[in-house]
């Protein structure tokens, strides 16, 4: 069982809680969600509490996070999009910190569960849909009618656009979920090879160098993926928000 690459995704109840037959227990997943929020908030609040005119290193980290996300959103959705800055910022930081938490051995990776990423993706999808319809009414559906398409192709193009819009939350959530899941499984499988091989005597120990190198390389890659997937999720959120604000202009 120590070698089982799926074991790390198991959810175990820490504080059982059952309301009307619905299991709402505080689990290891819940623990890491709370820890993610607690650590991110504590870091962001503590490092900026000095309000230094000249920022120290840690304050710079918070400021860079702020400006990085703000620029991302402003570039994608314009200054109007800045109303959604808290949403994009909290999504980016939450996913980034949750992903990085997953890099600690024995830690649970919150974002390796489809229901979590799907919930975040649906939050974005619902925001886009509601804001788009409230701001533009039926004009929001211009999103599905690209300009400069010949008339006979129009039904086909509209169908494609509608399908691609409706599948957005799926691709949005599965991308993050699958990356985290696959990365952690691969890491675990290669790390497991080291253990199994080194149990096979001298030859095995020599042979286990290869998966060891692989595991080290994959660990580095996984850190990159952790950041990249958080960035991609936030970036797509920015682009979808842009669609809600300017449905005709793409």
């Amino acid at each position: 069982m120590a070698n089982d690459p799926i074991h790390q995704f198991h959810i175990s109840k820490l504080v059982p809680l059952d309301i009307n037959g619905v299991d709402l227990s505080f689990t290891n997943s819940s623990l890491f969600m709370v820890a993610t929020v607690a650590v991110s908030s504590a870091f962001l609040i503590a490092t900026t509490s000095g309000r230094g005119m000249v920022p120290g290193r840690l304050q710079s980290v918070s400021e860079i996070c702020y400006e990085f996300t703000a620029n991302m959103l402003r570039d994608a959705a314009g200054s109007e999009g800045m109303r959604f800055f808290p949403l994009v910022f909290s999504l980016f930081v939450f996913i980034l910190v949750a992903n990085l938490f997953g890099m600690f051995p024995y830690f649970f990776t919150v974002t390796s569960h489809i229901i979590v990423t799907a919930a975040l993706a649906m939050l974005v999808f619902a925001t886009v849909l509601i804001v788009g319809l409230l701001r533009h009414g039926f004009g929001f559906f211009k999103l599905f009618v690209p300009s400069g398409v010949p008339g006979f192709l129009m039904p086909l193009v509209i169908a494609i656009e509608v399908i691609s819009f409706l599948t957005r939350p799926i691709s949005h959530s599965v991308r993050l979920f699958a990356n985290m899941l696959a990365g952690h499984i691969t890491l675990k499988v290669f790390a497991g090879f080291i253990v199994s091989l080194s149990a096979m005597g001298a030859v095995g120990i020599a042979g286990s160098i290869l998966p060891l190198v692989m595991t080290i390389a994959l660990t580095a890659l996984e850190f990159l993926v952790s950041f990249l997937q958080a960035y991609v999720f936030a970036m797509l959120t920015c682009m979808y928000i842009n669609d809600a604000l300017h449905p005709g202009g793409h």
């Binding site: 299991d23 227990s25 969600m33 929020v37 569960h113 899941l181």
Partner: peptide, 19 residues
């Protein structure tokens, strides 16, 4: 585990609270 629907309610609840 990620496709186990019995954990969905708890995850959604705690995600909603923490996020």
């Amino acid at each position: 585990p990620p496709f186990d629907p019995t954990t969905f309610a708890s995850q959604l609840l705690w995600l909603a609270i923490s996020f």
